[in-house]
Amino acid sequence: MQTTNEKYYINNHLSFIVSFHQNLETHSARVVGFEVKAFSINHEFADQWSYTNRLSTCDPHAKRLVTGFDPPQEVDDQEEVIFTYDVEFRESDVQWASRWDTYLLTADDQIHWFSIVNSLMIVLSISGMVAMIMLRTLHRDIFEYDQLDNLEEAQEQTGWKLVHTDIFRPPVNSESLSVLIGTGVQLFGTILITINFMVSGILSPSNLLNEFIFVIVVVWALMGIFGGWTMARLLYKTFEESEWNMKASLTTAFMFPGTVFCIFYVLYSLTSGGESWRPVLYDCMFGFLFLWLAISAPLVFMGSYICFTFIAPETRESVKTSKIPREIPEQSWYMSPIFTIMVGGIIPFVVVFELSSMLTSIDLHHFCYMFALS
């Protein structure tokens, strides 16, 4: 550091404070934290300096510890600087599982919740604006229909009636859409239940990471029955498939978990080849395979079979689908798929203010966490 007199000082002493927790059950101790303090001190000693001399300013035998009130060490040319350190062990009440909680303490909780509420209000405002535009369009079309004078004008289809016979038409790749939606329902249910566990305090990844991952996999496996039921509901009842499709059930049961398992196995092979210090054990891999093949996959088939057997098809007597699809006219450039996808992604990007606060915390070397997630 530099003063107004152009003098330079150096931190030549480090004070280490090591905290440990004593486990009375196992009669062992673990280090749960440490703290390092730097000091600048002009060491004093008798006669000429040698490694056998004792320092009067830092003498462990006399229990003389360095404090911030000692005169600092000035740096001059051709002058030796003595570097020292001391270590102090302190017993702590912090347990081994809670040793990282110190880094999770934040002082901007109000800003954190303000960002969440702000994002929620923007989502509600944009949703309300879109709903008002749609309602105004429908009211305008209905008003125009009520003003028609004769039957010929009433039979002419304008406005939203142009597509009323194509609303419930099955899409081109209805099977793939059903599989993706069924997989999404399974993942959404897993995330929802896991978040409820974390909010209630039952699970915490910062304390029990292995158990946390195991619970996620178990919940995902049990949610397979809802994924299969949703897939069958869309495919057989909404899209009016006549027969039970084994291919769709197999795809729902094996597409997403198979892809994830292949990626996981490749990463495991790379870490094992690189002599990773913490590779995944084979019994864990076989446990995940058992949950997938013995629990999740049968539940997917069970859910799809139950839906196909016991759920009646939907009836749409009020709106019938025409046999010949209406030809879609040529659209403007701003209605192209690429442009609409880009514009559709702008609104969620603008809404996510929570992401900006997380990135700011990362840039400032802070931890941003919620529901025990760090």
Rank of each mutant, 00 (worst) to 15 (best):
T3V: 01
E6G: 13
Y8G: 02
Y9H: 02
S15E: 05
S19R: 11
S19L: 09
A29S: 15
V32C: 00
S40V: 00
I41Q: 00
T52A: 14
N53H: 14
R54N: 14
L55I: 05
S56R: 11
C58D: 15
H61E: 15
G68Q: 01
G68H: 01
D70S: 08
Y85A: 06
D86V: 04
V87W: 00
E91V: 00
Y103N: 07
D108S: 09
H112N: 10
W113C: 07
N118S: 15
S119N: 00
L124C: 11
S125F: 12
M132S: 13
I133S: 14
R136N: 11
H139K: 14
I142W: 07
D146A: 11
E156S: 08
V163H: 11
S178C: 09
T183Y: 08
T183Q: 12
L192Y: 08
S200C: 10
P205V: 04
F212M: 02
I213D: 04
I225R: 00
I225A: 05
W229V: 06
L235S: 01
T238I: 10
S242M: 05
M246S: 13
V280Y: 06
L299N: 01
F301Y: 11
T309M: 06
I311P: 02
S318A: 12
P325Q: 02
R326V: 07
Q331W: 07
V351M: 10
V351P: 09
L359N: 15
L359F: 13
H365I: 07
F367T: 15
C368A: 14
A372S: 13
